[in-house]
């Protein structure tokens, strides 16, 4: 007998924790497009993005026992796994590149964000680019490039409190855009 093709979130998590292959296959079919979109928007290169996607799904599979249902939805957890893995990937790639280009750049911070923004963004990142500049730069640097609020305050030479307020306002505005 076939297992059902659609699961409730509780069933899905329960079956994944039982190491059920069909549930995992469903998870992949249902969420790979959403996660690939966020990975691709961060790492930008398709080849690297497919590597990251595989790594992300392997992490989800092996670390599902760490997912705590009381802390939030399964997608939120997977999204954070995808974002962190993507940022690690561009960081380790960036380390290689910056070693090669060390003499060319005086200020690494200045380069981050501003240069990247000219390229065509996709997915959520594209929506971020419709926001006003003071919000856009902070969301770019923090969400898509992984800088902490402290680091951004130093980079942009603005007080930490201002960074926090602006980042939150920007994300609140973003939330209104994606609300159906």
């Amino acid at each position: 007998m076939e297992l059902p093709q659609k699961y409730s979130e509780q069933e899905l998590v329960w079956l994944l924790k039982q190491r059920n292959e069909q549930a995992y296959s469903y998870l992949y079919d249902h969420y790979s497009g959403a996660l690939f979109s966020i990975i691709l928007s961060i790492v930008k290169e398709e080849e690297l993005a497919t590597d990251v996607l595989q790594e992300v799904f392997i992490k989800i599979w092996r670390q599902i026992s760490l997912y705590d249902t009381t802390k939030g939805r399964l997608y939120t957890w997977m999204l954070n796994v995808a974002r962190n893995t993507s940022i690690d990937a561009i960081r380790s790639k960036g380390v290689k590149n910056s070693r090669q280009n060390q003499e060319l750049t005086e200020n690494v911070y200045e380069q981050a964000g501003s240069a990247e923004m000219k390229t065509d963004a996709i997915g959520l990142r594209k929506l971020v680019h419709t926001l006003k500049d003071e919000w856009k730069i902070l969301i770019e640097l923090s969400y898509f490039e992984g800088y902490t609020q402290d680091e951004m305050a130093k980079m942009l030479n603005i007080p930490l409190g201002t960074v926090k307020t602006r980042l939150r306002s920007g994300l609140a505005a973003l939330s209104k855009i994606i609300k159906p």
């Binding site: 690939f36 497919t50 595989q54 939120t76 997915g123 994606i178």
Partner: peptide
């Protein structure tokens, strides 16, 4: 969380179909 998930599910970028095969193989 629900809004974010819904938005993501409605705007997917599908990865190459070979990825799933490789993933399940490994």
């Amino acid at each position: 969380e629900a809004t974010l998930e819904q938005h993501a599910l409605l705007n997917p970028i599908n990865p190459p179909s070979t990825i799933k095969v490789q993933l399940f193989e490994s």
